[in-house]
Design a protein around this nucleic acid. Structure first.
Lengths: 226, 226, 226, 226
DNA sequence: CATGAATGAGCCTTCATTCAT
DNA sequence: CATGAATGAAGGCTCATTCAT
């Protein structure tokens, strides 16, 4: 398998200019504007603990301990445990969609689009490992709550983007015609995102390297053999 | 892609004679001796709710409600919420290993072994959908507890079996030689098990059909072309 | 001043057959039906403590202590601290309106109606002293909450009943024509209900005796006529 | 009913020279020396919010918000939330007693004294509406605390003054001899002060007008004399 | 077998208060 | 004078678990 220009484009893309976001974050600094540094620090701590122990199993005390303050003090920065979760997830999704939108705007051919999306996904896993892990574990249950409706919306758009790409690929004879596309979509989606459960940033493989390997396995499976 | 004898063997296997279990369940009828029927009924209810809402988010009262008794009454049948979880997971793993062991005992060639393992996995997903979903979500955190050491042990053996199969396949020139085998292992493992998160028993596709599709995607990716 | 038949009717009325209630209590035993005895016991304790210390200043621990159980155990009987408050207040208002409705149904002349209403009020103070005290102190702030809308509704009907009685009395030349009726209404209303703040059941005066004295002052004044 | 000289005296009295205070306020400028203007502004805000929401239900942050500073900044001006309350209540009582003392010093006859006291009370309601409302709601619970002993002391003196006036009136055949004086005292006291719960300064009626109406009802009753 | 009632530990959250800047 | 950030003590509530009946 050799890399097309499109794939190269995707794999080399470095900057992440914000495209049109999927949603406007409802938590734009809950009315106050406390020091963003401390705030982000706490949020990253929360994300890590949520990812490690699960959202429900995580106590705010634990977060506070790890962040070096008392449980009550968290509430100076955040409205609630849930609002931390919301901010973590929406922050991740916003960036993800910024990346995806840029890929889509490039109007690559189906195979290159798929490669670029996969690569972008691994980049997001690299950048938001904790958020992705949380997302994997909690999204299904959260999505039914009005507050987390943006998760459901994101899932919907996600499916649409990937399915369209697959369909375009089938039409263009880039992907096998005998695929059950919904199954293939799930296969791809899970295959990529579950990686967050074992991926460790800075662990020998760059996101791009992993993406390349995954693509090699995945693509040569669903591509029309040549 | 055509099906080898080994694959056919795997796909047709119906019975599930218990092979040598990985572990002896410590919870064989927690000291009382209630009607096994009611007991299983409750356990299945618990599994369903655990799978739907997550173990932590599930209250013992919710289980009781769905099973048609009061929360306190559960403790006649089970020692604790945790012991229900343990029984659910160990029951699933015991059956899984019974299936795997039978496959391994057949000493098929690498490609057929892999096919048979994948097929067996989808059969277990079909039979223990809730348990698999719970396993996916909770195993990592549970495995560190002594009580759930059998999870870690199972994971270890799981990795060993799959890696060996892959290695044998590379040696036999059945699988591509340029694979990062650990990556390929994770890829396979996740790809198969995550299916539990969307699979619905009796939903148009039999486990064997899904297995075949997955194998088609996966195998033609990792198989040596040509 | 001598007592008319109507007043005598009011003062002698003993039984309290439930007329048409103002509202259906939304808290009809929150889905369970735990022993009504213990439930009422706790509720009376809560009412007493609320009346003594104020609703906000009362901790559920305090209620539990006084009722002889642990704080958490209250939640077996009640959904929340607020639901106890609701039940206390609605129970009182339901009985009050049962009494008022019976008085109104008797279609007495204005002066007798007023006397009967005042007497009935003192009877309710006697029976629901704590509830009345709570009502006095908290109603204004509670009434704006949807959950306690029945308070506002009751106040509205209350004002209507009393104002009508006063107006009929003025028309019938039973009450002075030079009164500011809204002022007189408030005067009467407060005068009667504030008594709950100092009234002690079984303290020498029966509700009927106190009602008689109050009526004497309200109707005829404290000054020596002439 | 016509107005005696004494009543006229009472109704026309405008100035409010401070007589001998009941107590020396312990909070005279809590150790700092901030601008008295800002201080009073904050105190009035606090009084308003206390009156609206109740002392316990009022957060120090709410006061700060309404006063246009941060919660912590209040502590530059005041020692504590409680000290604000104390200052509000003592300020009101000091002025009230200044007025009462002046009335008493005039040595009017019982009926005129009573009229003057009532009128003075309505004037205080007009001037210190919030403080009176707070007093009504919180005094009972506060009075037991050493810090608020001045409330109990004031109540004691209050009762003494009114009871004496009533007794003098009965002796002088100005008031009915068949009254239960303690009951009459409570009747009068409540009747007057509860008005604070609905009185709105600048709402059509001057304090003197309301006082006149109340006196008319209290002294002569609402019934047409027979 | 099941219920009703209670326990007690722990959770999220609130809030008066402090204090360095 | 005021702010930003934190403290620490409660407070309301949940929930797994127990146990007499």
């Amino acid at each position: 398998m050799s890399w097309s220009d499109g794939e190269r484009y995707a794999l080399e893309r470095a900057g992440c200019a914000a495209g049109d976001n999927v949603r406007v974050p409802s938590t734009q600094r809950s009315s106050q504007s406390p020091s963003p540094a401390r705030r982000r620090e706490i949020l990253e701590t929360a994300a890590r603990v949520f990812a490690e122990q699960g959202y429900n199993a995580t106590t705010v005390r634990k977060i506070a301990d790890e962040a070096g303050l008392l449980a009550g003090s968290l509430y100076y920065h955040f409205d609630s445990k849930e609002s931390m979760l919301e901010e973590i997830l929406s922050g991740f999704l916003d960036e993800l969609w910024a990346g995806y939108d840029e890929v889509l705007a490039a109007q690559l051919d189906p195979k290159d689009t798929l490669a670029a999306l996969v690569t972008e996904s691994f980049r997001e896993i690299d950048r938001h490992r904790d958020a992705v892990a949380i997302y994997q574990k909690e999204a299904r249950q959260l999505a039914v709550q009005p507050r987390f409706a943006f998760l459901a919306e994101s899932q919907r758009r996600f499916e649409q983007v990937w399915l369209e790409t697959l369909e375009r690929g089938v039409s263009a004879h880039a992907f096998r015609a005998d695929l059950d596309l919904r199954l293939a979509y799930r296969f791809l989606r899970d295959t990529v995102w579950v990686a967050a459960s074992w991926y460790r940033p800075g662990g020998g493989h760059s996101p791009e390297q992993i993406a390349r390997q995954y693509l090699s396995m995945v693509l040569d499976g669903i591509a029309v053999p040549g």
